[in-house]
């Protein structure tokens, strides 16, 4: 059974349509990439999956359950999220890691905190550092560890590397793909970088104007020779090529 299923999901904001009848299934343990131009609805689609945006009832299912029927805090613990702009909370790195469990009255043991830091390839001595003093790449990995402290089944990633330099980007990508191997985590990853999709993705969805253009494996979509014509046009920044119909 797919871990996430989206059926006929439409969304509008202030009377403007943002997403139009999206249908999609994501399998457990998959790294699923959402690509498309700015304003195509990638982030909005992602935010519907943990109800930061409100999907209509009966359009998004987690493990077969309509997510609008789940208590919102429970849903968000099972479907974690990492944002483009990392915001560290006041206190130390360890305080940040303990935030999620603390919301339901649980504490986070020192051993578990160090274990979480290990998963995101950070040194244990960072635990007692004030979170506000971290570099961008470190902060992003702490944000990932902070989400992992809730033991989610799915991690939503909203352009998690777009504010980072290439070295930090590499570290975060390695961390995330390692987590899939180690924890069987499902990743739904918004990216505007086609190269990144080629490096980390299993399947890719190309979104344009709030509509699905095509869903396919990385090879089907992004192979430089045999990939999808519109996906490759997007990769090259060729807007007209993205919109032209096949055979036109």
């Amino acid at each position: 059974m797919p871990i996430l299923q989206i059926r006929e999901l439409s969304l509008s904001r202030g009377g403007q349509p943002v997403l139009h009848k999206i249908n999609l299934s994501i399998e457990p343990g998959e790294v699923f990439l959402l690509i498309g131009p700015s304003g195509s609805g990638k982030s909005s689609l992602l935010r519907c999956l943990n109800r930061l945006e409100e999907p209509a009832p009966g359009t998004v299912f987690l493990d077969g359950t309509d997510i609008t029927a789940l208590p919102v805090p429970d849903l968000r613990r099972r479907v974690g999220m990492v944002f483009q702009q990392v915001a560290m909370f006041p206190g130390t790195v360890a305080d940040n890691l303990a935030y999620g469990p603390g919301l339901c009255g649980d504490s986070l043991s020192r051993a578990r905190a160090l274990d979480l830091l290990g998963m995101v390839t950070l040194e244990p001595d960072i635990a007692d550092k004030p979170a506000g003093e971290l570099s961008g790449g470190q902060a992003q990995r702490v944000a990932i560890a902070r989400a992992l402290a809730n033991q989610p089944d799915v991690l939503l990633l909203d352009e998690p590397t777009s504010a980072l330099d290439p070295i930090a980007t590499h570290a975060v990508e390695t961390t995330l793909t390692g987590l899939r191997e180690r924890l069987g985590l499902t990743l739904v990853w918004v990216s505007h970088a086609v190269e990144q999709a080629r490096r980390v993705g299993d399947r890719v969805l190309l979104l344009d104007g709030g509509r699905v253009v095509r869903i396919g494996s990385v090879a089907e979509m992004l192979d430089p020779v045999n990939g999808d014509r519109r996906a490759l046009a997007f990769a090259l920044g060729d807007e007209a090529g993205m919109q032209a119909q096949p055979g036109a």
Binding site: P73, R76, F83, Q85, F89, G100, A147
Partner: peptide
Amino acid sequence: DHRGRIENMLALGAT
């Protein structure tokens, strides 16, 4: 001003 931090907290299950 603090929308970013607040949404990070909401996404971790905060009310």
